[in-house]
Nucleic acid binder design. Structure first.
Lengths: 230, 230
DNA sequence: AACACAAAGTGTGTAAATTACACTTATTCA
DNA sequence: TGAATAAGTGTAATTTACACACTTTGTGTT
């Protein structure tokens, strides 16, 4: 009854993460500067081979943990890429994930496979090795779709944020413009965010109210058939 | 510069297909009766190990081709499952796909790994081996979401179909009821289907008009910002 | 030929949601 | 104290969604 899988089926599997952040009205992606072959000295998506004793999800989280020191990050599996020739050293499948992080919380941390890590505005990404550009495009499309139907935009903002900030986040990702009054009306009518009573400080104009996102509220509303849409 | 990947990273990768069909007002899924270990003599999702010289997408299509003899099938990658212990013979990742087929076109074909294949109504699926039940649940959820935002329901219907048929397809998948008049109004207003002039024959009631789906139309409409929603 | 049966097919009024649109307010800085 | 900057706010018009019931067209039976 015990048996083994023939070695003619044995390939490597990696995870690659598309890590999004939002800052200064720009959607950004986190890239690492590769310190090892192949494609040494290139900017690339952070990723790693999966060792045999690690669950898939766990591996994806570890990559992120090593890189940012952050935990409890919103992550989602995107797609798996498996062209025969996608890796020069042999057959390597890669499972792509995307992660949304509050860029303000991000701390640089040394890692084994990266000499450096940096944020790139989504429209200023350099050439990427392997099929990483295809993965990134896939991730962007998914983010665009997902952000309209699930309240995940808040994952990219600080704990306290202004209505203008969330609007420009949506505008940056969806590459459109929204009418301010209508956008606010709709967003507030969902009861997912509340005015904290706090205000912006030291801005050279009328200070904006600071809101926060109520995680629990969404779960409750979903149960009564509510569906998020922006 | 040439190098190899260490064998401590080598695992097997398989594809598993969730094949949906629609018949007699029921959503159905195609299962095979396993002829080989592990889980010999169980009903399971059709799938196979990927050999090293085959692209991922290609493998998924081949599984379906072997099983049904059908080509040009709507397929979509669902998710990749990679729990360490999901396969008793070793580390096996599996990439799950779903396929939508016109059940009327389906022809039984012998295959190497299946003694038999059969359609099961979605609510009468037997116990499944591995994490196949989890995969099936995943596929059902995806189908539910996808069918509301993309015109993929037509892939499950014969070339010529009635409005009642497509309505009951939607009702079966989404597990809701639609108002006939409103459903038709909305569907027809999208201009994605047209009256062929043909009619049902030999039915013991007023014969329904037969419509067909215009594939090209959707591509055109998408470009001008149209979005499908039902 | 007439009638029963079965599912197909069709329109309108009402409520809700979406859109378009421009001025006033609060704060900093010179 | 005035200029600059972004925040904040309401209403009317249009569009879309929803609720709702009877007539039509065929088959099969007597």
């Amino acid at each position: 009854m015990e048996a083994n899988i023939e070695s003619k089926f044995k390939a490597a599997v990696s995870v690659d993460n598309v890590v999004f952040g939002f800052d200064n009205n720009d959607l950004k992606v986190l890239l690492i500067y590769r310190g090892a072959e192949p494609y040494k000295d290139c900017w690339a998506l952070p990723g790693d081979l999966i060792s045999l004793d690690q669950d898939l999800e766990q591996s994806a989280e570890n990559v992120l943990q090593n890189l940012t020191g952050l935990d409890n990050i919103y992550m989602d599996q995107i797609h798996t890429f498996g062209r025969v020739d996608r890796h020069p050293f042999g057959r390597v499948f890669t499972v792509a994930y995307f992660a949304l992080i509050k860029i303000q919380d991000y701390m640089v941390k040394p890692s084994s496979w990266a000499e450096e890590a940096a944020w790139f505005p989504i429209n200023e990404v350099p050439e990427l090795p392997f099929d990483h550009m295809e993965i990134l495009e896939y991730a962007k499309d998914l983010l665009k779709n997902k952000i309209r139907h699930q309240p995940i935009g808040f994952e990219l903002l600080p704990k306290y944020f202004t209505l203008t900030e969330i609007q420009s986040l949506y505008e940056a990702i969806l590459e459109t413009q929204f009418d301010t009054r209508n956008f606010r009306k709709k967003l507030l009518s969902m009861n997912l965010i509340v005015d904290t009573g706090r205000q912006q400080k030291e801005v050279a104009h009328r200070p904006a109210k600071l809101y926060k996102y109520i995680t629990k509220r969404y779960a409750q509303l979903q149960q009564i058939g509510f569906s998020f849409d922006l």
